[in-house]
Write a protein that binds this DNA or RNA. Structure first.
Lengths: 121, 121
DNA sequence: GTAACCGGTTTCCTAAAGTATACCAGTATC
DNA sequence: GATACTGGTATACTTTAGGAAACCGGTTAC
């Protein structure tokens, strides 16, 4: 009756792994907001903390470190008094934009569907 | 689901909300594998459980319900003896393919970068 | 009758993710 | 000398995601 495609299929794995990689990088409650915030311009630590509503210093610090490790965000220390730290997107970080746009478009369509579906009882 | 964090910038919010919607739907350890499994053909419950390596009945049931609620997956009960249940992707579920492709392409590039970066000690 | 399939549910538990709060050294302002 | 800014840490706590295992009624096959 049903065709028996095996998922343990390496073909399948080959597709899944990079998708997982991408999703892992965007996972968590805050990374996305941080990236979008940086897409709108470079930011300093406290500045981001004020902008990304509700995030604690601990989480912001943790997420920025992960993003930096993944080469999406650059951390620059300026030798001013007091020392200021500037966070910016790398070119690589900016390369996420098409992915974010694909997600955004799909998400918009989804919202539209869910809303119009909810109208007729 | 849980997303009440108003980002100060309304422009920013407008972009973030649909992206979050999309990511929420793909979030978790199993949804992606379930979707890819169903992209390869319709499946019955036990069949998927065998195919998606390591998933428990509890999680499979839970994730399928969520995917069904989001109209990505259709559950069909066939009046055979014993009753069989068939899961399939909706057209809407299939509409995720461009998103998955965008994620996959970016993930591939990311892998390539991380690997080539690791080479020079 | 008993074992093994079907499509799940229930309960309990752990590991991870995230939160709250206090704290650090340094500088500048009143 | 108290307050508030800079960029964060440290510790302790709660909340959630996911896992393990037992169980359910029903059907078929031995």
């Amino acid at each position: 009756m049903t065709l028996n495609h095996t998922m343990s299929n390496p073909e399948c794995r080959r597709h899944l792994l990079p998708i997982r990689d991408a999703l892992d990088i965007l996972s968590g409650k805050w990374k996305l907001q941080i990236l979008v915030s940086l897409l709108l311009g470079n930011k300093r630590f406290r500045e981001m903390q004020r902008e990304v509503d509700g995030i604690t210093a601990r989480m912001l610090s943790k997420e920025l470190k992960e993003l930096e490790m993944n080469r999406l965000v650059k951390r620059t220390v300026h030798d001013t008094t007091p020392v200021t730290v500037e966070y910016s997107l790398t070119d690589y970080g900016r390369s996420l934009q098409p992915v974010l746009t694909a997600l955004e478009n799909w998400g918009l369509e989804h919202r539209r569907r869910i809303l119009t579906e909810a109208l007729p009882v």
